[in-house]
Design a protein around this nucleic acid. Sequence first.
DNA 1: GCCAGAACTCTGG
DNA 2: CCAGAGTTCTGGC
Length: 171
Amino acid sequence: MQISYTIVDSALDRLLVAATTRGISMVSLGDSDSYLEAELARDYPSVELIRDGSMPPEWVDTLVNYLGGQSSNLDLPLDVRATDFQRQVWQALQAIPYGSTSTYGEVARALGYEKTAARAVGHACATNPVSLVIPCHRAVRNDGSLGGYRWGLDRKRALLARERSRSLLFV
DNA sequence: GCCAGAACTCTGG
DNA sequence: CCAGAGTTCTGGC
């Protein structure tokens, strides 16, 4: 099995996009190319990774435009390994509209877990390999604080601030 | 393999 | 403030 990936500049640091022939398997943000490549290699140890391999250019364009603020919705094919529970959580996250936030407890309740599973939801978010496409940055804690973020709290803060200000333009 | 503890949490006592 | 709830992963034995 092979995965093609590319690393480009975006409005928010370096952006890595990795994909199989079927869809996107990883989207990540980071300060350096080597860090992003190491992260990818760790997640797919037994896979051949091809830098700048063939991948539909519109997949990368869509993400770059999204970060640049030219578009507000991501509709991309995903090819991600996940358990049933993770898939449910991620689907619920994608239902959160651009520019707004939800809480881990609300997501749990939406899935029928009566908010006892908030912690499980948090963990499912933490293992989401596809930032931006699955907007785990739009999930915050019930008391208003941001909770944590796999790619760094500063990036979560920055993403939310950008989305909030741009959502006004899209109305 | 098994069990305990942690991970981007929340509620009730 | 503490414990417990639901899922997955990791590290120690």
